[in-house]
Design a protein around this nucleic acid. Structure first.
Lengths: 367, 367
DNA sequence: CTGAAAGCGCTTACAG
DNA sequence: CTGAAAGCGCTTACAG
């Protein structure tokens, strides 16, 4: 075996030389006294090779610590054994759970996950996708950053790979879409508060221009309309979808357009919140304003993040099971990889109302 | 260009055919009227090619939507542009932040992250690593599952790849190791409580056989020894490192070996907790037992998870900046990939005490 | 400055 | 059942 001299200058490159010369099928073939073809057949568990030969080869594989070069095999076979997973915010437990679910499901089917985190930046998103595509993934699971441009992304991906988009609508692109049942979820939360006796229910938090916030507001509106209640303008409060933003905006629920306190009969007694982070923030804000969430003001969230159950009071919310969503996204993608072509599909994942202490009856309601 | 017929049966395999025929350097070369070599030089931004030729080739690349096949290039050049990241629990925000930091840093250097999540299972860990190694990563960052077997893992990895181990010691393996300064952190927390006037300080939570718990206990012991205080046996309480486990074990602090209540002068007035999850759980448990954390019992945590600042009372803890640790692990690995060989190194990352409301003075102490 | 040729590690008809 | 040969998409000395 000739070892090529290293004639290249160590120019600054983004890639690295592999450690030492790796063991190849050639080495195994020579040592076992067979051809490379035979070794390959053994590796791929073909029944064509004689049991003794197989044993000899396998012994040699073990002995030399052979590591299969799946990239080379993929190149030759024109296949891929990876999927690209691009996440807008891996730091958010919701998406981390989702990622774990994806990795679990694709791993079980023999694929490896190529990870990219975009930190909600559309620019990084494009760069990350372009970089991942060069590694020839069999498909892509994309949880888009806010304000992503679907058309540009479609150009980056070259519509060669199957793609499943998760969670946020991506206008301009024509890909499969897995989304939570935001509308029904918010409707259920609102109905729950109505059944407890609330009439003045606010919708608190989120950016109204995001697709998920729009859907949740629509579900809230569905329930209010069915109850023949016309929401007042100041019952809608927009915030960044974070705890901190929500905490500082709590007072907006009790102020009218002129920043004057609203009368007691106009002040909401409950709020359907955009998500759990916002709901937890609102509860903090309420406490600062002398109101007790779960006693004199009812709150619901969305997501059922781990903290929801441990909050004081525990948060009534909608469980979405992000890990299962990850598995589901993986299944949808693998299915699409298997069949190719066909219309793009939208899949709506169910959510489940979890009632806890934060959704109290209105003060003075009959029990 | 001849298109090979697809003569293969669609046998159930773990890999998938790529969508359609991809555009290759060959296609570009033909269309631009140059050789493949020239296209390759353009792609690699060689100064050797004439500016006009370059322009022609680049126009063609854009036009056909060429996607570089980095796997093929890596095969030919015997390089790698991926690193494997194996995480014991991606669902834990601490590790999710770490993963985001790794991805950010390796991405900035032109590498892609191959992700594997082991869910704390040593079996999955071996399987995941074996699978990732077949994709020829330039190196591995491993946050080991509990009870991992370093020697077995070393065999799986074939000591070809550089490895950086994070967070948990891996006995039997000879790899670089990045670890938090657990001992100093716990010492600082303990000293802080001592300065507030506490004398009877417990160490609460964690499995004493884990390396991080051992180190934290040692730091606690350092501070107590320096203060000439001999901890009582029931001041050590072991729990699983979760909130729930901690909440249910809170009473153990106030019971002696015979499960009888300890006398008031033996009961601890403060606890250094193994981590934040445990500290938050303990606070819940204390409330149930009629004690008010942050008023008549002081608590400290470890990690500074996002909830710590929002707890009631806010949790005094040690900030470890997991995202920065991720970047650091990536830098260590890339450095090792660059230099090869040499002794294994241990790097200890600093931690920072963050004082919040949960660490109160002991009841009745002079202010 | 450009092209022809060899080769990275694998797989796969095709002969024997 | 096994081996020789071609080729996946790239890169890289080596000639010209």
């Amino acid at each position: 075996m000739t070892t090529g001299k290293q004639g290249t200058r160590p120019k600054a490159s983004q890639t690295s030389k592999r450690s030492t010369q790796a063991i190849t099928v050639n080495d195994i073939a020579k040592a076992a006294g067979v051809s490379r073809a035979t070794v390959s057949l053994v590796l791929r568990e073909s029944p064509l090779v004689h049991v003794d030969t197989r044993a000899r080869v396998e012994a040699e594989l073990k002995k030399q610590g052979y590591i299969y070069n799946r990239s080379a095999a993929n190149l030759r076979r024109r296949t891929s054994s990876s999927i690209a997973l691009v996440i807008n915010d891996l730091t958010n437990p919701f998406f981390a759970e989702f990622a774990a679910g994806v990795d679990e499901a694709v791993g079980a089917r023999g694929y490896v996950t190529l990870l990219g985190n975009t930190s909600e930046s559309p620019e990084r998103e494009e760069a990350v996708l372009a970089s991942l595509m060069e590694h020839q993934p069999a498909g892509v699971i994309l949880s888009p950053a806010e304000h992503s441009d679907g058309e540009r992304l479609e150009r980056v991906l070259g519509q060669r790979s199957p793609v499943v988009v998760f969670n946020r609508e991506l206008t301009g692109a024509h890909w499969d879409f897995l989304v939570l049942d935001n509308r029904n979820g918010a409707r259920m939360a609102t109905e729950h508060l109505l059944e407890l006796g609330h009439r003045r229910i606010a919708f608190f938090g989120g950016h109204a221009d995001s697709s998920s916030c729009r859907e949740r507001r629509a579900g809230y509106a569905d329930a209010m309309r069915a109850a023949k209640i016309e929401p007042l303008p100041h019952w809608f409060v927009e915030t960044a979808p974070t705890r901190l933003a929500a905490a500082t905006r709590a007072d907006a629920l009790f102020l009218d357009g002129n920043a004057a306190n609203v009368s007691a009969q106009d002040a909401p007694t409950a709020a359907v919140c955009y998500n759990d982070a916002v709901a937890l923030g609102l509860m903090l804000g309420l406490v600062r304003h002398g109101r007790k969430p779960g006693e004199d003001f009812a709150v619901t969230g969305f997501d059922d993040i781990p903290e929801a159950a441990f909050a004081a009071p525990p948060l009534t919310t909608l469980a979405v099971d992000p890990r299962e969503r990850g598995r589901q996204a993986a299944e949808l993608l693998l299915q699409r990889i298997g069949t190719k072509e066909g219309e793009e599909r939208q899949t709506t994942a169910p959510v489940r109302l979890v009632v806890r202490g934060s959704s109290c009856k209105p003060k003075g309601a009959a029990s």
